[in-house]
Amino acid sequence: MRAGRVAGTRTHGGDGTHHPRVDVSRLVGIRTRHPEAIEEAAARRARRPLLTAGDRLLIVAADHPARGALGVGDRKLAMANRADLLERLCLALSRPGVDGVLATADILDDLLLLGALDHKVVMGSMNRGGLQGAGFELDDRFTGHRPEDIQRLGFDAGKLLLRIDYGDPGSLTTLESAARAVDEMAAHRLPVFVEPFITRRTAGGALRNDLSAEAVTRSIAIASGLGGSSAYTWLKVPVTDDPDDMARVMETSTLPAVLLGGDVGDAPQDRVAAYEKWRGALRLPTVRGLVAGRSLLYPADGDVAAAVDIAAGLL
């Protein structure tokens, strides 16, 4: 990391792994006096192909804060400390087998200034308008990276969230805007990772993603048909409630897919069960990797390095 490095170190790994602390004052100073440094860092970033020889991807996700989703387990503001989040991200990105990061502009700009994105896959998060807990949460408008931003900055892919509620007419607007985003990304020849869910509101008004085999199958079928070309479309899909259903579910499309990590729980047995679900699904022919965020960056035992290494081992 070129900018932001200071003498002190912190440890975010039980194996004693040390990671340089993020100098927030220096980052703010660069942003204040030299905002052009972000685009300059993007221009000189050493790039790599989306896929390497193993045809597998492990991406660390950190686009949650822009949707107001700062909680991890019972820690409601776990992701609110930006320096801590950046340190965890830099540590994760430094581990063997980690291919890249998915985040919004503010976080990717910081990582560019820190020099942490060389030879990494960089994915811009495109729609963050559906704020967690808001009455308009399903209105997932495109408030993040535009296709032209991803191309201009030399990033490698984009990601969009597609939550569909059959009882909410507004879902049609989300579908249409997602389709146009797929079109624009294809026009730039940029991969776009579509994360679809069939979503329902509980009696109390909370949103719940339906992870039954039927619902995930329908969401994959819908997402696969978006836009005028699927040539650059990937899927980002959850593991179903019953992981034994995944083989049948993934027969729904020939599009390449990555698994989303989601929350794995704090109990050791919950983490083991989640890893086993991922391991099984990763053997399927269309599944090409894993995109996980909070489960790797904020493990219950605090050992980021170990959590990332376990995920890398699954691939």
Rank of each mutant, 00 (worst) to 15 (best):
R2P: 07
R5N: 08
H18R: 14
V22S: 05
V24T: 15
L27Y: 07
A37Q: 10
A37W: 13
A42K: 05
R45H: 05
R47F: 08
T52C: 11
L57G: 02
L58V: 14
A66V: 14
G68C: 01
G73L: 02
G73Y: 00
G73E: 00
L91K: 09
A92H: 06
R95C: 11
D99T: 12
A105G: 05
I107K: 01
L108P: 00
G115H: 01
D118Y: 06
N127Y: 02
R128H: 11
L131S: 02
H145C: 10
Q151C: 10
F155I: 04
K159M: 12
G170L: 08
S171Q: 09
A181T: 10
D183L: 05
V194P: 03
F197L: 15
T202G: 12
L207M: 09
R208M: 07
D210W: 07
L211F: 09
S212P: 00
E214A: 15
A215S: 15
T217E: 13
I220K: 09
Y232G: 01
T240N: 00
M246F: 04
T252V: 05
G261P: 00
G261W: 00
R271D: 02
G280S: 13
P285M: 03
G293E: 06
P299F: 02
V308H: 07
A311W: 01
A312G: 13
